[in-house]
Measured scan of single mutants.
Amino acid sequence: SISSRVKSKRIQLGLNQAELAQKVGTTQQSIEQLENGKTKRPRFLPELASALGVSVDWLLN
Rank of each mutant, 00 (worst) to 15 (best):
Q33G: 09
L48Y: 02
R5A: 08
S55I: 05
Q12E: 15
P46M: 13
P42W: 10
G14K: 05
V6C: 10
L13Y: 03
N36W: 06
T39E: 12
L45Q: 01
G14V: 03
K7A: 11
L48E: 00
A21E: 02
L60T: 13
A49G: 05
S4K: 10
K7Q: 08
Q22A: 15
G37A: 09
S1M: 11
G14M: 05
E19V: 05
I11P: 02
V24N: 01
K7T: 10
K23A: 12
L45P: 01
E32Y: 06
S50D: 13
L34N: 01
I11A: 09
S55R: 06
S50I: 15
K23M: 15
Q28W: 08
N16H: 07
Q22N: 10
I2T: 07
T26R: 06
D57V: 05
G37E: 07
Q22F: 10
L34H: 01
N16F: 03
L45T: 04
V6N: 00
A21S: 05
L48W: 02
I2G: 03
S30N: 13
S50E: 14
L15G: 02
I31F: 02
L52K: 00
V56Q: 10
L52A: 00
E35W: 00
Q29K: 14
V24Q: 00
Q22W: 08
Q22D: 13
K40Y: 12
E47G: 08
L60H: 06
K23G: 05
R43M: 13
N16E: 10
R41P: 10
G14Y: 03
Q33A: 14
N36G: 10
L34R: 03
A49C: 05
L52H: 00
F44L: 06
L15Q: 04
S30L: 13
A18E: 14
A18W: 12
S1Y: 09
P46F: 12
Q12G: 09
K40W: 12
G25P: 08
R41M: 15
R10E: 02
Q29P: 07
R41A: 12
N36L: 12
I2M: 11
Q22S: 12
A49V: 04
L52N: 00
K38N: 15
A18T: 12
E47Q: 14
V24H: 02
A49F: 00
G25A: 05
R43Q: 14
R5E: 03
L52W: 00
Q12T: 07
S55Q: 07
I31Y: 02
N36R: 11
S1R: 09
A21D: 01
V6Y: 01
L52Q: 01
V6S: 07
E35C: 03
N16K: 08
E47V: 08
T26E: 07
K23Y: 07
E35L: 03
Q17W: 12
K38S: 14
E19N: 06
R5F: 04
W58Y: 08
I31Q: 01
E47L: 09
S55E: 11
S1V: 12
N61I: 10
L20Q: 02
L13A: 08
Q22I: 12
Q28L: 14
Q22M: 11
R41E: 13
K38Q: 13
F44R: 06
Q33H: 13
V24F: 02
P42A: 09
L60D: 08
V6M: 06
R5T: 05
Q33R: 14
I11T: 10
S3E: 09
D57K: 08
L45D: 01
G25S: 05
G25M: 05
T27A: 06
N61A: 13
S3V: 05
I31R: 00
R5L: 10
E35H: 01
Q33T: 07
S3K: 07
L34M: 07
S8K: 10
K7M: 05
S1P: 10
V54Q: 03
V56E: 12
D57E: 11
L13D: 04
E47Y: 05
Q17R: 11
Q22H: 11
L20M: 04
S1T: 14
R10M: 05
L34T: 05
L20E: 03
E47W: 04
L60W: 09
L20C: 04
Q29R: 13
A21C: 04
V56H: 05
V24M: 06
L48C: 02
E35M: 03
T27L: 06
S30G: 10
T26A: 09
R41Y: 15
L13S: 06
I11Y: 06
N36M: 11
L15N: 03
T39S: 13
K38F: 15
E35P: 02
G37L: 04
L59P: 03
W58D: 06
V56Y: 08
S1E: 11
A51R: 02
P42N: 07
A21H: 02
Q28M: 11
L48F: 02
S3R: 08
I2A: 04
G53K: 06
A51Q: 07
I11G: 07
V56R: 04
T39A: 10
F44Q: 05
F44W: 14
L48N: 00
R10G: 02
G53M: 06
V24P: 00
G25I: 03
E19I: 05
S8Y: 09
S8E: 14
S55G: 08
L15E: 02
P42S: 07
T39C: 15
L48I: 08
A51E: 06
G53I: 03
N36Q: 12
S55C: 07
E35K: 01
L34A: 03
Q12N: 09
I11C: 10
T27R: 06
Q28R: 12
L52S: 02
N16R: 05
A21Y: 00
Q12D: 12
K23N: 07
S3W: 03
R43L: 15
K7Y: 05
G25Y: 02
E35Q: 02
E35N: 05
N16S: 15
L13M: 12
G53V: 14
G14T: 03
G53P: 00
W58Q: 05
N36C: 10
V24C: 13
S30P: 02
N36H: 09
I2D: 03
V56M: 13
N16D: 12
T39M: 15
S50T: 12
A18F: 13
Q22R: 11
E35I: 02
L34F: 08
G53S: 06
E32W: 08
P42Q: 05
E47D: 10
P46Y: 11
G25D: 05
S8D: 12
S50H: 12
P46V: 14
K9D: 02
W58M: 04
G37I: 03
Q17V: 13
K9Y: 03
I2P: 04
K38Y: 14
N16T: 15
K40T: 15
L34Q: 01
F44K: 07
Q12M: 10
R5K: 12
K38M: 15
E19H: 05
I2N: 03
Q33P: 01
G37T: 05
S50K: 14
G53Y: 03
Q17A: 11
A49N: 00
V56S: 07
L48P: 00
K9I: 13
R41K: 13
K23R: 12
A49E: 01
K9A: 13
R43K: 15
L48M: 05
A21V: 00
T26Y: 03
N16M: 07
G14D: 06
Q29E: 15
T27M: 05
L60F: 08
L59Y: 01
G53C: 07
T27K: 07
Q29C: 09
V54K: 02
Q17K: 07
K7I: 13
L15T: 03
Q22K: 14
G37P: 03
L20F: 03
D57A: 09
S50A: 14
G37H: 06
T39N: 13
P42R: 04
S50L: 14
Q33L: 14
A21L: 01
Q29Y: 11
P42I: 14
R41I: 15
V54T: 08
E32F: 06
I2H: 04
L15Y: 11
I2Q: 04
I31E: 00
L59I: 09
G14R: 03
N16L: 08
L20W: 00
E47S: 11
P42G: 05
E47K: 11
K7G: 04
S8P: 02
R5S: 04
Q33C: 12
I11Q: 11
L59R: 00
K9N: 03
R5M: 07
G53A: 06
S3C: 11
K7C: 07
S30Y: 15
S30C: 15
G14E: 07
L15P: 02
Q22P: 02
L34Y: 05
L52R: 00
L45Y: 05
G37Y: 03
A18C: 12
S55A: 08
S3Y: 03
E32T: 08
S4N: 12
T39Y: 09
L15M: 14
Q22E: 14
Q12V: 07
S50W: 10
I2W: 04
V56P: 09
N16W: 02
Q17T: 15
S1C: 14
I31L: 08
